[in-house]
Design a protein around this nucleic acid. Structure first.
Lengths: 201, 201, 201, 201
DNA sequence: TATGAATGAGCTTTCATTCAT
DNA sequence: GATGAATGAAAGCTCATTCAT
């Protein structure tokens, strides 16, 4: 009597994954809806049953990526009190999140590019706000550490920016040439170096 | 020697600047040939007297940017012997180059994105090779410093990558929110911190 | 006799009514099958259990409209002998039929448009034939009246066309601005005027 | 030095005529941009150099048709004082305008249909207002005639509506079957009959 | 029988590129 | 050399229709 009742959510996710994969490989602008359909193993029209437009897919892909990262980091920060341990947990969370999607990390370029261009504060696609949130989280940890006399009295806002930038930049390097160094190794060095420069002797 | 030739070159450069400006503002994919023509104050068809295609403009824009940076850095490195001073000169050169084009830095996102995607080693547009050159230059300086006992015995390849990545990442942060910190101030901190971590006590 | 059969017929009619309503509001070209399904309170696929295609619905909608008008007029003409009374009955029948569906009269535009375009004589959708039938009916009445010396000796073919055209045209005016005049009032004037011009003094 | 400088206006008009012709034959909804291009003997993309969209073509086609009719009628009314002569001139103008475009009159169905559906008073495409203008012009003539005692004391608003509707309706009949009667002959009858019914004895 | 998820042909529209002037 | 009118390949998107359930 009733037709096949699909799990709409799971199919949507499948399409989202397929799209993200193709976006990462070819770039958003060079990705055709038919490419996504092909990758997802469905018809072109079917995509529109789940997403309003190509832009909407891109946007949701971004959201998904960010939410994943957020929840992963939040889980790690949970219950940790010590600022140094907290900072390490944050960095580890970030790196793990990145590692999880290393094969489709090329899309981050498009996230950034789009984020930079959509300047309007109220834009739904506001990467600036996302980074601001990261920055505030880290700044709070740093402030705490400085108050407790564990960290040097640095400019915590700039330090937070430097940390995030450094991680992004390293990922960028790694994306460009994955044979250059082992990502985990380099990030370990980075983490040690940043923490080392921060800690009071 | 002929004035014709000179005119041709300078007009080409004008178009290139116009294109780079529009690329930076709107992104390469969203930039129309007519946008470039408008910005350059010429006719749409005229562009094709100087460039083969839109891709060619993008490519030459990238080359120009890189050559500028290269020559600026080369000038600073010239005649400096001391590894530490050399490294500082390299970083300063990079930062100055970046500062020169801060207003059109948005295009770097497209450079990176395109560079990441054109993986073929023989691609004319091989950003990987460009970065490899940077890396080698820095690695050589680091190796020298390590040999002379000035720098700690670090993995110089990874350290070079980290330096470049860090600088790129910081620029990325700054691009996203220019009001966040003064670029020069942050880069100074970065430079000090990197050098400090590197130097033997 | 089987209840199944009855159900099927009545459901088909429901769909037909729903479709006609939506057609009238949005125009045939702008009406989606899903709009019809929604209006009829059934699933999109179900429509195809009762109709072959969207075109078939449109065609049957037209047929239904015309058959209704036909039977209404036929009922009124029945048993009337006097040509003048017959003509009045025809006009009244036409007007009553129109009045019955004033709220969905917008679809007549599409009937006409489609009718005009499907020129092929053998087309199932031949509005020309429908009008030809009307014309013949009226012509016959007029011929009768002329023979009997009741009507002036007019060109009965053209007069019939004028009568039908006038009625359609008035409806058209009324459709465009329903607040302009009371439809019944205007049609009464029209009827009087036409009959008056026709009658021998 | 300078490229071919086309007369933009005349080419636009060519496209408009081609479009109107195809619209009339196939209906607006069934007309593809490529059909228009084919008819106009140009490329599909060229149309967009002169019109924003398909809708814009339809709209301008309508405007052109109406402006033509308006100016034709205005020319004829000019300098005529007598109400009866004025009315005759108006009708003749309308008929001449219609005759001029009898071959592409099918598009009127779409004009009407669209006009009926776009109800918003402020819509640029407001056929209701066009007809209102016609109605007012005729009403004024009728009022004048009634004041002067030339016309019977009819409801001039309804009479104006009936006149316009009658003309439209007759055209409709004629469009449906062009072999049925000679348009000019029928319209002459109509004109005589309307005027005859109106004049005081 | 009833359904709505799936589909792809077909549409409008864009824009890099060409080329007559 | 310089131009912009002309173009058509290609893209995003719609929706009548199918069909597995």
């Amino acid at each position: 009597m009733s037709p096949r009742k699909l799990d709409k959510t799971s199919k949507k996710k499948e399409i989202l994954f397929a799209a993200t994969k193709v976006f990462a490989m070819k770039g958003v602008a060079n990705t055709k809806m038919s490419d996504i359909a092909l990758e997802a193993g469905i018809g072109k029209g079917t995509i529109y049953e789940y997403f309003q437009s190509k832009d909407a897919i891109f946007y949701e892909s971004f959201r998904f990526f960010m939410e994943q990262t957020d929840s992963l980091i939040a889980n790690r920060l949970d219950k940790i009190q010590n600022p140094k341990a907290k900072l390490e947990a944050w960095i580890d969370g970030w790196l793990e999140s990145l590692s999880n999607s290393l094969d489709q990390i090329g899309i981050m370029m498009d996230y950034w590019a789009e984020g930079i261009r959509s300047r309007k504060e109220d834009s739904a696609f506001n990467i600036k706000n996302i980074y601001e949130k990261y920055r505030q989280t880290i700044k709070k940890i740093l402030d705490e550490g400085v108050s407790l006399g564990i960290f040097k009295p640095v400019n915590t806002m700039i330090s937070a920016s430097i940390l995030i930038g450094t991680l992004d930049g390293l990922a960028l390097q790694w994306i460009m040439d994955k044979n250059l160094f082992r990502f985990i190794e380099a990030s370990q060095i980075l983490k040690d170096s940043f923490l080392n420069g921060l800690m009071k002797k």
